[in-house]
Design a binder for these strands. Structure first.
Lengths: 335, 335
DNA sequence: TTGTACGCGTTATCAT
DNA sequence: ATGATAACGCGTACAA
């Protein structure tokens, strides 16, 4: 197979201990032997075996990341940030695609634990009790990303969905809208569903805007089709709506499409606002005004937290990341 | 730390050899000891150490994947397929983000080699000589995905860009268009740039459609801004164009946006066609007609090829994947 | 059917 | 400054 430290030692007429020292720059060798050894390493094209290193050091310099789905710009941006921070630290990242499937998730968890990854980032999904137990039992460091746990004290990185949603609704009101509808995601979703709905409701009631069942349509998920269906339903139950807030960019863009089909002009006849600030959002017609999450930054932060946790052994503070209204062209002022 | 096979052996009053046999189901033990051992494993919550296994088996059940960028739906779909096939096989995937940077790429390659991944998938980018040499020297199995090498006999998985582009142009002609423009990607790009341009040109000339410098605008990349700039330039140099082919979906969607700004109606005034069939393509206004690559399938195929290569030791045949015209609403028949 | 002991490629401890 | 050698956790040939 490939060369080992033994081959290097033999060819350089030194012991493997010396080679190891030089490799790790620990001192305790003369410049002369150092250059000799380095030269042999070069000649042989020797590459240290990280597996053997991992066995003895109990550090694999690998972290595992679990996502419910891979093919989504949201996840991709998170991953982008994670990968960056990990790489800056000399670590690699193993991606796992759980499909929100409990069995699969446990299987992945088991895999990651057997591989002795240094830690795990669990992203964009509810941390079920079963998962938490399994991970805890293994003592594996864990960070939650774009999700949080109310039941367990696991450090997380995410924006405050309630506040973000509140500020979206407020933005719409500041623009003069009073007939505001929302196409929410799944209201059973404790993390991304409910808080956004409640933030929206609170904003309206804080500003004395009448609010009842007509204002909100609840979809199953946060997808494009949910958005097109959602708009139709909303228009049905709330015909004089002038502005709508989608609980995700995909929903909002679905609404844009549906509006187009129905001959409704955005933003002239109807203002539309999204949530996430995916790359999609600047490519839509019109470009989407949205409340942005710093996705890549969040991924990066989560990875850095995990890495720091490995160094210090201390459990880090959770981080609430700032959201920000990204003004583009899908919302129009209303006098 | 966590329990080892030794702990299990001791508690079950057997040797580690027996535990190992049971773990790997090799037979050579009584049912009684088996259930005893299994019970102890359960009690202890023992998880075999894959690092130690990897050291002795010389198989890490991990593959490395290199992408030029992560935050793109194209890459994500590929990754989705890779991850699926790998997981079906009990392998994990490490993602690397090269940013098309030579130094970074080599650094990643080194990392993957040191980690003794079982093989590498190199995606969506030119395989430079330097990379190829480095990989070859390490004898690491290698598959190219959505790219190919003219210089080295490395197995690859991709569609035939020349043909795909040809059929896109032909589709437009079949719809009655004769004034057809193209917003190409980078013409220096030997893999995704040049072949698509040439396929387009060939299709037009095969059908006796006049073709000169006016027909094509060359952009730097394949991005959304390239598309919006591209359309403006194209309209300048070829005002009576009735249909345009973008060398990527992002380009095409950029063109859609630019057209909208200019008050040009798609598809009534101008037909637009893309290339890739990203998820974006069904969310645009109007939904984009495009020539689709089976991205996830391609990723899956590449991973399967790599895995098979590891089993058999034989270098697999390259695979040309089928492309397909996806008809949506951005192209209109012209009488 | 079961156990002993060596080896996988490192790092680290203890000598020298 | 350098070298033996014992781990790390596991698989396996060989012995019993």
């Amino acid at each position: 197979m490939s060369y080992t430290i033994k081959d290097v030692a033999k060819k350089a007429n030194v012991s493997i201990a010396t080679v190891s020292r030089i490799l790790n720059g620990q001192g305790g060798y003369s410049e002369k032997t150092k250059s000799k050894v380095l030269q042999v390493i070069e000649e042989l094209g020797y590459q240290p075996n990280a597996v053997a290193r991992g066995l003895i050091n109990k550090r694999t310099h690998t972290i595992g990341v679990l996502f419910p789905k891979l093919s989504s710009s949201l996840v991709t941006d998170l991953l982008d940030g994670i990968e960056k921070a990990a790489n800056d630290n000399g670590s690699s990242v193993i991606v796992c695609h759980t499909e929100s499937n409990g069995e699969k998730t446990i299987k992945y968890l088991q895999l990651l634990i057997e591989k002795r990854v240094d830690g795990i980032i669990f992203a964009s999904e509810i941390l079920k009790e079963e998962y938490h137990q399994y991970i805890t039992k293994s003592k594996m460091p864990l960070i939650l990303l774009s999700t949080e746990s109310y039941a367990y004290p696991v450090p997380f990185v995410k924006v405050n969905d309630y506040h973000a949603s509140y500020s979206a609704a407020k933005y719409l009101m500041d623009k003069g809208h009073t007939k505001i509808g929302m196409i929410s995601g799944n209201k059973e979703d404790i993390i991304a569903g409910k808080p956004r709905i409640e933030g929206f409701q609170k904003a309206l009631s804080d500003h004395n805007i009448p609010l009842d069942d007509r204002n909100i349509v609840f979809s199953r998920g946060f997808t494009f089709p949910d958005g097109v269906e959602g708009l139709k339903k909303l228009l049905d139950q709330f015909p004089d709506v002038t502005a709508i807030f989608g609980a995700s960019d995909e929903i909002a863009i679905g609404a844009l499409s549906a509006a187009y089909q129905l001959g409704i002009k955005v933003p002239e006849d109807l203002s539309v606002m999204g949530y996430d600030n995916l790359q999609l959002a600047e490519m839509s017609i019109p470009p989407l005004t949205t409340v942005g999450q710093p996705l890549a930054k969040m991924g990066e932060t989560a990875a850095k937290m995990l890495l720091k946790m490995l160094e210090t052994g201390e459990v880090p503070e959770s981080r609430i990341m700032p959201h920000k209204i990204i003004e583009r062209l899908s919302v129009k002022e209303r006098k």
